[in-house]
Design a protein around this nucleic acid. Structure first.
Length: 902
RNA sequence: GCAGGGGUGGCGGAGCCUGGAAAACGCGCAGGGCUUAGAACCCUGUGGCCUAGCGCCUACGCAGGUUCAAAUCCUGCCCCCUGCACCA
């Protein structure tokens, strides 16, 4: 198999089959998301590319000029970390390289620079793509750190800025103060996702300044009875602008990432205890000690609402002060007993001992859920309003009155960086954004998504939902490979922002090989991509190339890009190009699992693409990664299935010996009829990328047909079959198809052949029904033999009486016994029989299937009598019910002949 | 919390949009064929019961409803998966 594959790949390449010329006839331009070369590809990566390649190959067969290019996305930071770890000789990574990627230590030691690393994996991936037979136009290959490409991206950002879509502002990120770096989930201890949440810091007048309590429930300020501090912690007096605040020392450290704070002095928590503070509406409340206060979260000060917060209730009870202070019940909800204290009730119900009882956390969550979602405010300006709405109103009001300020902290905190330091929330100044929150831009994007083809269609909703919640996207990073940001060259454009319009760049990439990147200025790209300005003579070919290939006809990627890359891609196209150059279609697919499990390094179950190709052959791998499930679903790569595919393929190739002849007998007509059905159905299946149905129609069901044909035909004549099958299967299995094509003595390549035209006229439903009948009779006879435990010597098959066919047709049409009885009166048939027949059909009168006419049924069975005799090892006699001879003959129904065994 | 998707045999999954004989196709398993043997391949079977097949019964997360007819349409409930960003 491998020899065959390599032979055809070489011939295709030699003939430049996949290097289309612009400007000739109808075209299809198809791209798949370019790979990030930080590892070799596994079979999972193969799914998207194979899907796109199949799609591209289908359109070639339909006579389109098809462009399917590929490049490498080397932008990003992970590759920097990987190079660093290689430099340091990280044993874990070296082991992954050796055991999973198959890269020797000696080679790994040469890959300590990011550039060397990406080039190594790019070559590896490119080789793999060639080996699996993707019809890529490699002349257009580029890397996203190429200077030509950098110029293109910078042009793109200039255009976006001219439209006001590139903006500058502050931005909050999870931040490690020790590393001075942005922290994401894989940088934290325990891989905690550092989720940023907004909280209200409510100010309580205290001495010369304010004690600040952080809360998610600002609306409960009306129920506050006291403040909590941790007596064992140290607190600090700080200046935030004009204001003087008191917070815990640990909290101050975290807050200083968000605000400029000057530390003025220190005070021990225990010294705060017993003092008084004033809540925003003037009530004096005491400051009390509590053990549950976490000085590292929020501000280290907690406002106490004992009626609605189990912790506050418990801490107050632990102090023996419950009842002396409040409680103030400030909201109610359906099902709450009048006069009850919700926090007290839940604490009693759950039998919670004190503030250190772990169950207190569950009680808090449960009560919060009820109160936040169903609660109604009972006191204050917002009395009668839903808690859910009041929450926001109270916050805005307090902030407006200077009695609170908004800040951010990490949910589920405290979160720790791998280096050990506590992670905080930092406000980054001078951050550049792409303003995907711009309503005008969004509206245009929504409109275009409405017009585009989306496959699978169900995903359209996801795109629209994503567009709705998209807002400013930080588009630069401090480091990494890629394109320098044109308005601040010290920054690099981050990977999801430099990969949104590169499909346009492919159209000219091969013509820029020898160009000086410095000459690729705004004027150049304006002319080539937008037709602006006068242009120069030497730019003409590129302008033509772009105008020919654009718009992009189909974009392919994994479903994981639906929430980021793909909407960005639409946003950027909408911003840059006129409507006639906007993408026409997006197709996304699910993941590939390995033997039912997610592929991952830790499971050690990653099957590299090139290894799979070596083991099973390119065509088998291509088929296996796409045919197992519909586009949207996750699919499963199973070795047993791949082996099954390979086995069937070998079987089918062994039938090539029968490809020397054509025939026009009953069974050849039958096979042509079956195939014609598929040929007629296939275009819409290919165009809709209905992978599961395609797999059935070009492979599995074709096998079934062949098996029946081989059983029924005297001497197989498969020339016509192979001539057509080679073409329709070639998108999935181009190498095998090419081999068949040439063994038939065909000229040219099958990958360039014309998709077989087929007319309805070649479908013979009657013939197929007849064969169905033959199969059914065989099945029934075997069933009966089994039941009576004896092989028959003679089998009588009775075709029903002619009148039954008329009666059946009448029942199908009228669906009423009365009409049949009327008909029976004039037919001369015994009325008892007519009535019995009709009653038998009544229960399923709404779903009677189409059947052959009497002569057709008789003819089909008579023709197959010899075959049935041989199969059943008994003489088979086909008779008409009218001929009589056996009592059971009367049981015959259209589509269900009576059978008598002797 | 918000958004999106999903519950069908031993398993992966068709069927749902557009109601009309659920389980296509594959995997696994069982029996048989071909082989010195094996692998591969081929054939047959695979919810239960049965008055020889053409038959009956039971099944599509749970509970209702609409209909001559519901896996499919409607209502309520239960459970599961994915995403929530600056990152590939």
């Amino acid at each position: 198999m491998r020899g065959i594959e390599e032979k055809w790949r070489r011939k295709w390449a030699g003939a430049g089959v996949y290097e289309p010329k612009a400007g000739k006839g109808k075209k299809k331009y198809i791209t798949a998301a370019f790979p990030y070369p930080n590892s070799p590809q596994h079979v999972g990566h193969g799914r998207t590319y194979t899907t796109a390649d199949i799609y591209a190959r289908y359109w070639r067969l339909r006579g389109y000029n098809v462009l399917f290019p590929m490049a490498f996305h080397v932008t990003g930071t992970p590759i920097l970390g990987m190079a660093k770890r290689l430099r340091e000789g990280d044993p874990e990574l070296l082991s992954v390289f050796e055991n999973i990627y198959g890269i020797s230590r000696e080679t790994a030691e040469t890959l300590t620079e990011p550039e060397a690393l990406v080039m190594h994996f790019s070559r590896e991936i490119e080789e793999g793509m060639k080996e699996i037979g993707y019809g890529v136009d490699w002349r257009r290959k580029f890397y996203t750190f190429d200077r030509h490409f950098n110029k293109f991206v910078q042009w793109q950002f200039r255009k976006l800025r001219q439209k006001g879509y590139v903006v500058k502002g502050t931005h909050r990120v999870a931040w490690c103060p020790s590393d001075s770096n942005v922290v994401s989930a894989h940088d934290t201890q325990g891989d905690v996702d550092p989720e940023i949440e907004e909280v209200a810091g409510i100010k309580f007048r205290f001495g010369d300044g304010w004690l600040v309590a952080a809360t998610y429930r600002p609306e409960t300020v009306y129920g506050v009875t006291n403040l909590w501090v941790d007596p064992k912690e140290r607190y600090v007096k700080v200046a935030k602008g004009e204001e003087i605040l008191y917070v815990s020392e640990k909290a101050a450290k975290m807050l200083s990432l968000q605000f400029h704070l000057d530390i003025l002095g220190k005070v021990d928590g225990v010294d705060l205890v017993g003092k008084e503070a004033e809540e925003p509406y003037g009530r004096k409340i005491p400051i009390l000690p509590a053990g549950f206060v976490d000085a590292g979260q929020g501000t280290g000060v907690v406002m106490s609402v004992p009626a609605h917060a189990p912790y506050d209730y418990l801490a107050l009870r632990d102090l023996g002060m419950f009842g002396k202070l409040g409680p103030i019940v400030m909201l109610s909800y359906p099902g709450m007993r009048p006069g009850s204290v919700p926090a007290g009730e839940i604490v009693e119900r759950m039998g919670i001992g004190g503030q250190n009882d772990p169950k207190a956390e569950d009680a808090t969550k449960e009560l919060y859920k009820i109160e936040a979602h169903t609660g109604i405010m009972g006191i204050g300006e917002f009395k009668g309003m839903k808690v859910l709405e009041a929450k926001e109103k109270v916050k805005v009001r307090l902030v407006g009155e200077g009695k609170a300020f908004v800040f951010y902290l990490l949910a589920k905190g405290p979160v720790f960086c791998r280096c050990g330091a506590q992670v905080g929330v930092k406000m980054v100044e001078d951050q550049w954004f792409l303003d995907y929150g711009d309503e005008g831009w969004k509206a245009a994007v929504r409109e275009w998504i409405g017009k585009m083809d989306v496959m699978p269609e169900a995903v359209r909703k996801d795109y629209l939902a994503t567009v709705d919640w998209l807002k400013e996207k930080a588009c630069t990073r401090a480091s990494g490979l890629g394109t320098p940001f044109p308005f601040d060259k010290s920054k690099i454009i981050e990977p999801l922002s430099d990969s949104t319009a590169y499909m346009a760049f492919y159209t000219i990439a091969h013509l820029l090989r020898d160009a000086d990147p410095e000459e690729l200025d705004e004027e150049f790209f304006d002319y080539v991509f937008l037709g602006l300005g006068k242009g120069r003579k030497e730019w003409e070919p590129m302008r033509k190339e772009f105008l020919y290939w654009y718009p992009l006809d189909s974009r392919h990627s994994g479903g994981d890009l639906v929430r980021n890359h793909l909407p960005f891609f639409v946003f950027n196209h909408v911003a840059l190009f006129p409507e006639e150059h906007l993408p026409r279609q997006i197709a996304t697919n699910g993941f590939v699992m390995m033997e039912g499990k997610k592929m991952s390094k830790s499971f050690g179950n990653i099957l590299p693409l090139r290894k799979a190709v070596r083991e099973y052959g390119a065509d088998v791998v291509r088929f296996s990664v796409v045919a197992g499930a519909d586009l949207a679903q996750d699919t499963n790569f199973e070795r047993s299935v791949a082996e099954g595919v390979r086995g069937r393929l070998e079987h089918i190739l062994s039938l090539l010996e029968y490809a020397d002849a054509d025939g026009n007998g009953r069974m050849e007509k039958w096979l042509k009829s079956r195939m014609s059905r598929r040929l007629i159905a296939l275009p819409s299946l290919y165009e809709g990328l209905e992978m599961r149905a395609l797999a059935q129609n070009v492979f599995y069901e074709v096998m079934h047909d062949l098996q029946w044909y081989l059983k029924r035909a005297e001497r197989p004549k498969l020339k016509w079959f192979f001539e057509n099958w080679a073409v329709i299967v070639s998108p999935f299995m181009p190498h095998v198809a090419e081999e068949i094509w040439h063994s038939l003595g065909k000229k040219g390549f099958v990958v360039d052949a014309k998709f077989p035209e087929c007319s309805e006229g070649m479908v013979d439903a009657g013939l197929e029904m007849g064969e169905g009948l033959v199969g059914m009779v065989r099945y029934d006879v075997e069933k009966i033999s089994e039941r009576i435990g004896a092989k028959p010597k003679k089998v009588f098959v009775y075709v029903p009486a002619a009148w039954k066919f008329d009666a059946y047709g009448l029942m199908r049409e009228k669906k009423a016994l009365r009409d049949l009885i009327e008909w029976g009166k004039g037919s001369g048939v015994d009325m008892a029989e007519v009535s019995k027949f009709g009653k038998g059909l009544m229960s399923r009168v709404h779903s009677l299937p189409d059947v052959l006419p009497a002569e057709g049924e008789y003819g089909a069975l008579r023709d197959a009598a010899g075959f049935l005799s041989a199969e059943l090892g008994a003489e088979v006699v086909v008779r008409r019910e009218e001929e009589g001879g056996h009592a059971k003959a009367g049981n015959a129904m259209p589509g269900k002949p009576a059978i008598v065994l002797e």
